[in-house]
Design a protein around this nucleic acid. Structure first.
Lengths: 139, 139
DNA sequence: ATCCTACAATGGACATTGTCCAAGTCAAGC
DNA sequence: GCTTGACTTGGACAATGTCCATTGTAGGAT
C-alpha cells in the first residue's frame, strides 16, 4: 500500500479523497511526474478533482518534506516520492527521461570556503545530462 | 570592447543593430540576466527592439556555445556570457542571488558506470543552495 | 552606388506552467 | 448529526516563452 499515505496521516493531515488520490498516484509509479501528469492520472480515479487542488496538495507534500520537487528542465517541475533517500538525477537531453543516480563523492565538501562568498551553504543538486540508450539507438 | 561580439562576428554572424546591442548588454555586466532583463537594458539603447528578437538572439548565442543558459530556479532562464570557463552556481534560496563557483573534484568521474544506465553522459550541472550574507543578516 | 535576396526583426497571438481568490463543500471532533 | 475551520473548486490572472506572417535590411553581386 501507500507508505506515503501512512506518513502523511501520521502527521495529522486531514484526509480527503483528493489528497488520497494524489498520494496514491505519486506513490504508485516511481517515475518523476509533472503536476499535470499527476492531475491527469488523478482525474481518471476521481473525475472532479481540480488542477488547483493537485498543485496545492503537491506543494504541501513538498513542504512536509515527504516529496521532492525536481527541476531538470525549464518545463514543468516534477515530483519525486523518493524524498527520504538522497540522490541526484541523470536526464536524457533528447527525450527527457530521468533516472535517479547515487554518485560517489560529496560535492558539498568540494566547495572550498573561499568559494562560498559568505553563504551558509545548505544543499546541492547535481544533474547529469546525456543521451539515453533508446535515443542513441534512434539517432 | 566586446569579446563576445568579436567571437560572434568571427563565426559569420550577420551583424545587426539588435544583435550588437544584445551582445553588448550581456558582455557588459557579468551578472546572470534573464531574457526580459536583457530586453529591458537593450530597449534603453535601442528603443524599438522587440522581445522576440532578444529571445531569438539569446537562443542563437546559446546554440553557438558562446553563452550559457542557467536555470537555477523555475522562473526565468538566465544567460551567462562566461561560457568558456566551466563553472557551477551558488544560489541564495531567499533572494535568488547567483555566484559562479569552481568546486574541486570532478562530478562526472563520480558517476560509476553501473549508475549510468547505458546513457552517454556528456555533462553535469551542480547547483549549490544556501543563504547569502545579506539575507542572513536580515533574517 | 544600387539592387537582390536570404536572413533577421517585428509584434501580437498563443501555449504552458503555475498562482490566487471567493464561494461552496466536507472531515473530524463534539 | 451539527459545527466549524480546513479543503476544494473553477476560473481569472500572471510570468515566461514560442510561433508566425509580415516587413525590413545586411552584405554580396553587378
Amino acid at each position: 500500500m501507500s507508505d506515503l499515505l501512512e506518513r502523511l496521516r501520521g502527521r495529522g493531515w486531514r484526509m480527503t479523497a483528493q489528497r488520497r488520490v494524489v498520494a496514491e498516484v505519486l506513490d504508485g509509479d516511481h517515475v518523476h511526474l509533472t503536476a499535470d501528469e499527476v492531475h491527469a492520472r488523478a482525474v481518471s480515479r476521481l473525475p472532479e478533482i481540480s488542477r488547483a487542488t493537485v498543485y496545492n496538495t503537491l506543494g504541501e507534500m513538498v513542504s512536509l518534506g515527504e516529496v521532492l520537487e525536481v527541476s531538470t528542465d525549464r518545463r514543468a517541475k516534477r515530483y519525486d516520492p523518493n524524498a527520504h533517500r538522497p540522490h541526484h538525477h541523470l536526464v536524457c537531453a533528447r527525450c527527457g527521461a530521468i533516472r535517479d543516480v547515487h554518485p560517489a563523492g560529496n560535492p558539498l565538501a568540494d566547495l572550498p570556503t573561499d568559494e562560498r562568498y559568505g553563504f551558509m551553504v545548505s544543499g546541492v543538486e547535481v544533474t547529469y545530462r546525456g543521451i539515453c540508450p533508446n535515443c542513441a539507438a534512434t539517432a
